[in-house]
Amino acid sequence: MKNKENVLSQHYEINGGDFSNAGNISTQIKETLKELGIRSSLIRRAAIAAYEAEMNVVMYAHQGQFQFSLTPSTIHFTVKDLGIGIEDIELAMQEGYSTATEELREMGFGAGMGLPNIKRNSDQFQISSTPGKGTFLDIFFYLNQREK
């Protein structure tokens, strides 16, 4: 890959189980994208992906790092966590599959739609995970592309 000039880069820490701040990172990123005048259809997609990635760290990991960067051509999120990891990624990617606890389900989580939402709304998405260690997401949105 060619080197691209970052126009903006933000780093956020996420604490597992911290439901009172959950969603704040996604909201901040959304505000930033708005201020920068990114088109609203793209902001909507990026906000959905950011939220779902952020929530999965809160739900399934101890600790995580959310890196947001913007170049002239892409919005890029990397989300890395230390947590239980995912045994079967193909299964986890299926809509409706969830290991959310009863407690989480009562709060409205556990539709098994988070990862599919990220995939559907992004232009490029990669996930890798080591069970017992953690999970890594690499999510891209292209600024100069026809709407999907």
Binding site: F19, S20, A22, G23, N24, S26, T27, K30, A47, I48, Y51, M107, G108, F109
Partner: peptide
């Protein structure tokens, strides 16, 4: 739950 508000705000 308060996460309802996070979703409402974001959307």
């Amino acid at each position: 739950h308060q996460n309802v508000i996070a979703v409402a705000k974001l959307k």
